[in-house]
């Protein structure tokens, strides 16, 4: 099982969008994926179909059997575990456990993620939060998500610090990728930002920046990941390429043919 964490210093960059859509794309390609929401916002559920009325989640006391039942009841494209902990007290309690016991989250993940899962995509809260920190500690790969604006440079050091802390003293440091989301290729400022970011990050910045496309939001309004809603858009094509890029991080992962990452074309 490989854990991929999606992080960013600022909110609204597209972590949730990426987790949901990469989940769809990888699941379609035949990988056994699971999306895990570690962001107290519980936003991932609006894309992957949270089942209403059930108090289930990573931050809840749900047992692994409950989780398995919950996953079985889902009909969406990707199995997904919500964050849970909808009220303040629950959240505070979970956070204090997390602070006190650095191994708790990993144990919890190993406990509730079904055996046979190959990839776990983890959504995190923006900035330096204890959840993010713990997720990073267990991640095998980390994807920094950025926007092509002036602020992305301001926040780059934040990410750098977070990653630095994660990698220091680790004998198996995670693979780090960066991706630019909501790219506007016609916008000079955005292109400059991309160029600068590339100079800073080099090869770690994947070449397939994801274009900004209103259909992402339109799909969300229908509670669908865009990869299911409009698989032939440029944004989804870029996401597919990103998924291929991420897979290169894991040499031991069972390979699927390149074509299996192609969308099934409806005739």
């Amino acid at each position: 099982m490989k854990i991929i964490a999606f992080v960013s210093a600022k909110g609204g960059t597209g972590r949730t969008t990426l987790v949901a859509n990469l989940g769809v794309i990888l699941a379609r390609a035949g990988y056994r994926v699971l999306a895990l929401d570690c962001d107290p916002q519980n936003a991932l559920g609006t894309l992957l179909g949270m089942l209403p009325g059930l108090r289930v989640g990573i931050a809840e006391g749900s047992s692994s059997n409950e989780i398995i039942e919950y996953l079985a009841a889902q009909r969406g494209g990707v199995p997904y575990i919500p964050f849970g902990a909808r009220d303040r007290d629950d959240l505070q309690q979970a956070e204090s456990t997390l602070l006190a016991d650095s191994g708790w989250l990993l144990r919890r993940v190993l406990e509730i993620v079904p055996t046979g899962t190959e990839l776990v995509l983890v959504d995190t809260p923006a900035g330096e939060r204890v959840w993010t920190e713990r997720v990073l500690e267990m991640a095998h790969a980390i994807v920094g998500v950025h926007l092509p604006d002036a602020a992305c440079f301001a926040t780059l050091p934040v990410i750098a610090v977070i990653l630095e802390r994660r990698c220091r003293g680790s004998e198996l440091p995670p693979v780090v990728w960066h991706v630019l989301n909501q790219m506007e290729p016609r916008n000079e400022l955005a292109r400059d930002a991309e160029l600068l970011l590339r100079q800073h990050l080099g090869e770690r910045l994947v070449p397939c920046s994801i274009p900004r496309d209103p259909v992402v939001g339109e799909a969300w309004a229908q509670q669908l990941p865009v990869a299911l809603h409009s698989p032939m858009t440029g944004a989804v094509a870029a996401l597919r390429e990103l998924s291929e890029r991420l897979l290169t991080s894991f040499a031991d992962l069972r390979r699927h043919t390149a074509t299996s990452l192609q969308p099934a074309r409806e005739s």
Binding site: P185, R186, P211, R212, D213, P214, V215, M232, T233, G234, A235, V236, A237, A238, E241
Partner: peptide, 15 residues
């Protein structure tokens, strides 16, 4: 080669 079309409404199409 893969390419992308961006329409004036902002929608992108993979090509």
């Amino acid at each position: 080669l893969p390419a992308m079309v961006e329409r004036s409404c902002g929608h992108t199409v993979a090509c």
